[in-house]
Computed example of a mutant assay.
Amino acid sequence: MTVPGPPAAPPYRVLVTGASGTIGRRTVDTLVEAGIGVTAVSVDGPGDWPAPVRGLRIDATDEAAMAEAMDGCEAIVHLAALAHPSLGTPLRVFTNNVVSTFTVLTLAAQGGIGRAVIASSINASGINLNPHAPAPAYFPLDEDLPADIADAYSLSKRVDELSAAMVARTWGLDVVALRFPLVKSPEELRSIGAETAQDPASMMRTGWAYLTVDDAARAVLCALRAPLPGAHVIGVSAADTLLDLPSEDLLDRYAPGVARRRRFADREALIDTTRARTLLGFEPAQSVHEFASAPGNGCGEGETH
């Protein structure tokens, strides 16, 4: 049976896995601020959540516990993962991430939940973490960038996207896989930017992309609200790059042999966020550069295709 997508208004209760992580904690706060009930799931336990939040200590690979936790929820935000290949053996990283995502999505679909938002990654292309250091095929980086995967984490993110497509096709669950770049607080990002300025080539393969944690949480809210059926992979990014240098200059110096599909103005981001804008109505509101900061904004209606 095909489950219809959610209305433009957010659902009443959302289950968030990985709720103690960088994006997870801010997402819980953002949902609560939007008047949404939250069940926060984390292997680290309930935590000090505000009163409306139901906190649970659960491993997202635990099928029985996750099925019970989903009771009464209308949507799922799945953020739990081992988020770097260094956080375990290749087998551990891959199986944890893939099994948890597949468990969450299949339980949600079979339980009649209408919408899931999952955390994919800019690393789903494999380019950034590949030890052979391949250059991207082109800039701006987009969701169709040819993959070159040589690590277990990047592979797990690509498989998660395929799992989302399969579950949508089989059971009709609507799934948005958000390809997050580097996500931190503005203060942390400024510090990383200062370090990266000493070796700009170190971030070339991700296009010096970043997103503040507040904007990441807003992207999740937009993905929950968008009237968007099916499974979609959507890249998100700040509107500029992490470095305080013109984008064309960065490419001239550090990626001279990489094709450019268009020209870039000033410090414009080197990530194509067309899908985020047109399908989710999401526009980044924050920048690590004061001259580019913008007031917060909500989610547009998006465009379904």
Rank of each mutant, 00 (worst) to 15 (best):
M1D: 11
T2K: 11
P6R: 10
P11D: 02
V16C: 11
T17W: 04
T17K: 06
T17M: 05
G18W: 03
S20T: 13
G21M: 10
T30H: 11
V38T: 03
S42L: 09
V43C: 09
V43T: 15
D44S: 14
P46Y: 09
G47H: 06
D48K: 05
W49M: 10
A51P: 04
P52D: 06
R54Y: 11
G55Y: 11
L56H: 02
A64Y: 01
E68D: 13
A69H: 03
M70Y: 03
E74C: 01
A75L: 07
I76K: 01
S86Q: 12
S86M: 09
T89G: 14
T89L: 00
P90Y: 08
P90W: 02
N97L: 12
V99A: 12
L105W: 08
T106V: 13
L107E: 09
A109H: 14
G111R: 09
G111K: 06
I113K: 07
G114E: 09
S120I: 05
I122P: 00
A124D: 15
A124W: 14
N128F: 15
H132K: 11
A133L: 14
P140E: 00
E143M: 07
E143T: 10
D144C: 03
P146T: 08
A147P: 08
D160P: 01
D160W: 01
L162H: 10
M166G: 11
A168Q: 09
R169D: 15
V176M: 02
V176R: 03
A177Y: 06
L182K: 11
V183G: 01
L189A: 05
R190P: 04
A197T: 07
A197Y: 03
D199T: 13
M204Y: 03
G207N: 09
A209P: 12
T212F: 04
D214G: 14
L221Y: 14
P229H: 03
P229L: 00
V233E: 09
V233M: 05
T241P: 13
E248I: 08
E248A: 15
L251Y: 04
L251E: 09
R253T: 15
G257W: 01
A259L: 13
R262P: 08
A265Y: 13
L270S: 08
I271G: 00
R275K: 12
L279V: 02
G281A: 00
A285G: 15
Q286N: 15
S287M: 13
H289C: 00
S293H: 03
G298T: 02
G298K: 00
G300R: 00
